[in-house]
Design a protein around this nucleic acid. Structure first.
Lengths: 347, 347
DNA sequence: CTGAAAGCGCTTACAG
DNA sequence: CTGAAAGCGCTTACAG
């Protein structure tokens, strides 16, 4: 491949001059600059960014380490991150830790010397295991975490508050026997959402031990949990799923079982992925502004990269309730008002 | 930040020995190796990958340049790429060209010296403009292109064949006045799908100038096109949309207008994004095996990276028909067989 | 087995 | 304005 030495030789100047001309440095006469640029064009010279960043001590890139790259959730997250990063002329180096805590450390280490900052989302554990992996001196922001670790800032979601809000919505709709399909046991979001649910049930209905079925954040897991619920003896008239994908799987099973949504059973999710609005009936959920989460985290990272002396901070974003037909037993069931009545009687 | 010199000093050896010990090189006595590894651990040393790749002349990373990072399509594509890349221990450096042909060149150049290979998807133009931007000597594979450019291989989709197949399906279902909502004018996929549609209509129905409404691959664009169709005087009993997102927007408008799908109007899309199966009614579409497209391209790139003397190749993947309820006027309308009859009479 | 040296491709003080 | 030199952090022949 052609290097800056080739360009310098072709133009009859030193590599120093070539570098200056190619980098818009003013200390070059127009003539030599033109000669150098011509040579570069003729040789189809493209600078080696790896070498550049080694000497410039900056990469103009930021690393993003995620548990997965797939699905609407991460897609939106990356979109938000990219919006801010691109505006600052930064490239994104994405890394997939494939859900493995061990690979997280590997992925983070592989970023050293390639990026100027790091965005990390590690949904399991308390984040202290990240402390060892994070390169000392590299600005970092934890995504979806609710407190800082070492020098890393954090941007999180108010999962507990969100879970409380949607549970209260179910209660307000008249549902009284509300079950919860939880997320993965070690997942931080899942635990917090479950906690918010339990608290809200206790505060509103006064029930101390609501039904909680384990789940795994997948559509199949939601379906399986719904089957368990139906097979069990405990009656229920609503299900709050810890995320939307499970709610979708859950709804399919309920309908197959002949249960009408929202009349026999109300269903609510969490996240508001695009699919949620297309489900039939459309799914009530807590909208997590995922792209804003990403954009916000990136903005904070930029600030830290400029001033790395600043103390790490924590930001918590509030999700918002999106009430749709899947829980519209009382107020929102504009489509089949008669059936609402029947169902209410039926329960 | 701590460098290998710090480790060497701490362990009382030369940087050469430190490097060897840290890279599992056998030429180190167990004792010195242990001493060096201890020092590295104590200092929390993490190697500078940028410097490593400069001397090793390889980055263990591959660059992916896409028109956008958002949406299910790219999400699945990246998933497929990552599956293969990860198995080979390669990182992914993603770049978003934000739909701009100009930014494509910038994004590609920025990859020089950071990656060992390049995957590029540039949906507009004929790909020859890429020729100038692709660094000479860097293995590259074009995604979604149907012929090679320079040294770059290509992996494409049989859009024409797919469009013909789904058009024939509509005809087989009894639809006779089939309109097409096209994709962006300069988009290669869109043009090929339109061509396949036109050919199939001519071959089956004998119609030479079927109705074609411009679109833009977005949901809003599909809705707008559907409104145009309804407002126009030309009768239609089916719509083949150039992609699924437009089909979704299209269906919403049709239903609002009181048209029953599939009885009054059949609707078909292209891509089979996950949303397609969730639409009501579920959408008939051509499944493009997007993740396989990505995995396939990555596999080819790996082969090129091993043997860069090989001649560039072209691979075309065939999409498969997924018949769902949105076109089930004749055979698949298991839900409302009576209405099928009515609708057929009605037309 | 170990170390001194060269070099990867670039940029940037430092002289002139 | 221009060039020679040092250096970014590493690896790898080359000697010993």
């Amino acid at each position: 491949m052609v290097t800056i030495r080739d360009v310098a030789r072709e133009a009859g100047v030193s590599v120093a001059s070539a570098s200056r001309a190619l980098n818009q440095n003013p200390n070059v006469t127009p003539e030599t600059r033109a000669r150098i640029q011509d040579a570069a064009r003729r040789l189809r010279y493209i600078p080696h960014e790896g070498a550049r960043s080694l000497t410039r001590r900056r990469c103009d890139a930021i690393g993003v380490v995620l548990p997965d790259l797939f699905g609407e959730y991460f897609s939106e997250l990356v979109r938000g991150i990219d919006r801010v990063a691109h505006a600052s002329g930064l490239q994104l180096l994405l890394s997939n830790m494939h859900g493995s805590p061990h690979e997280t450390a590997t992925a983070i280490r592989a970023m050293r010397g390639r990026v100027d900052g790091l965005l990390v989302m590690s949904p399991e554990g308390d984040g202290s295991h990240l402390h060892d992996a994070l390169p000392h001196g590299l600005p970092a922001v934890l995504l979806n975490d609710d407190h800082t670790h070492g020098e890393a800032s954090a941007v999180g979601i108010d999962n507990e508050g969100g879970a409380r809000a949607i549970t209260e919505h179910l209660v307000a709709q008249g549902y009284r026997r509300i079950a919860h399909i939880a997320g993965p046991r070690h997942n931080r979001d899942a635990r917090q959402r479950q906690q918010g649910f339990v608290d809200a049930i206790a505060a509103t209905i006064g029930e101390r031990g609501p039904v909680i079925v384990p789940g795994d954040f997948t559509e199949a897991g939601g379906a399986e949990a719904a089957r368990l619920l139906i097979a069990g003896r405990v009656p229920f008239d609503a299900i709050f799923c810890a995320n939307d994908m499970m709610a979708l799987g859950c709804m399919a099973v309920l309908e197959d079982a002949g249960l009408a949504i929202p009349d026999d059973v109300g269903v609510a999710g969490f996240d508001d992925i695009p699919l949620a609005g297309y489900a039939s009936p459309p799914l009530t959920t807590m909208k997590v502004h995922i792209d804003e989460l990403g954009a916000h985290a990136m903005t904070i990272l930029l600030a830290r990269m400029r001033d790395d002396g600043a103390a790490p901070t924590t930001h918590i974003l509030a999700p918002t309730l999106v009430a749709r037909a899947s829980t519209a037993r009382v107020k929102f069931d504009y489509r089949t008002p008669s059936r609402t009545h029947v169902a209410t009687e039926g329960n």
